[in-house]
């Protein structure tokens, strides 16, 4: 990073612990994959209500795609990161690294 450049701005949608964890988890999935809502909830250790709130914010930003469907008769919801969400996450991690570099690096 060039010294003296202004600190990069952090995406406010992602720059909150809970939503960062959601996006980081979904980012590990392959491009054509979606994760079932209960699996994501268990993985993150959040309550269904809390996760829904964060997913709605991410969906409003166009970062996640939520698909409601049925498996047999039980309704299932699948969550995936959109292209835009993936890009935003990449930008965010880049920005965080840049911040660390200007601060003299980690540790």
């Amino acid at each position: 990073m060039t010294a003296g450049s202004p600190p990069p701005e952090l995406d406010p949608v992602i720059h909150a612990q809970a939503r960062l964890r959601v996006v980081a988890a979904l980012n590990t999935l392959g491009d054509g994959d979606e994760m079932a809502f209960p699996a994501l909830k268990d993985l993150l250790g959040m309550t269904a209500g809390n996760l829904s709130v964060h997913l709605t914010k991410l969906e409003d930003a166009g970062y996640v795609r939520i698909t409601k469907t049925h498996r047999g008769r039980t309704p299932v919801t699948y969550v995936a990161l959109t292209k835009r969400g993936r890009l935003a996450f990449d930008e965010y991690t880049k920005a965080i690294r840049a911040l660390l570099d200007t601060a003299g690096g980690p540790s």
């Binding site: 720059h15 960062l20 980081a24 988890a25 965080i96 911040l99 660390l100």
Partner: peptide, 12 residues
């Protein structure tokens, strides 16, 4: 930022 980076890595 360090904590955020650690958080990302742990979650991944």
């Amino acid at each position: 930022p360090e904590e955020m980076l650690r958080l990302i890595e742990r979650q991944r």
